[in-house]
């Protein structure tokens, strides 16, 4: 499959997701939603990894190079997923802890450290 879908299409999809996620981190106020936008950005990067793993970056590479990059890209995705899972567990714990202190959830409230 995917023989006739150009690489750039995957990259454009990833780019749109990354941009939207980045904008969302800036404009949304709910910390959980901000967190979700970060997840969105992570996933767009995963998509890029996989697209490059499938198509390779350099044209005209040998089969060994292609296989190595294919494996490397997929394994990077696995690690990103594992790290994202750990990050979500801790991050949501932090949000819950802040909520317990402040009884509301808004990123602009989390300013107790600004001195």
């Amino acid at each position: 499959m995917a023989n006739d879908v150009p690489l750039s299409w995957f990259l454009i999809m990833s780019l749109v997701m990354f941009t939207v996620g980045g904008v969302g981190v800036v404009i949304r106020r709910n910390p959980v939603v901000v967190f979700m936008c970060i997840e969105l950005m992570l996933n767009s990067v995963n998509l890029t990894f996989l697209a490059f793993a499938r198509y390779g970056i350099t044209p005209g590479q040998t089969i060994e190079q292609a296989n190595a990059s294919a494996m490397g890209g997929q394994i990077a995705v696995i690690f990103v997923m594992a790290v994202a899972a750990a990050e979500v567990a801790v991050g949501l714990g932090i949000i819950m802890a802040i909520f317990r202190l402040k009884n509301r959830a808004d990123v602009d409230d989390m300013s107790a450290l600004r001195g």
Binding site: S8, L11, I12, L15, R54, Y55, G56, P59, Q61, A66
Partner: peptide, 14 residues
């Protein structure tokens, strides 16, 4: 700078 230069990349022989 990134996507357009790569748009012609052929599929790797995996």
């Amino acid at each position: 700078y990134v996507v357009m230069p790569l748009s012609m990349t052929a599929e790797s022989p995996v």
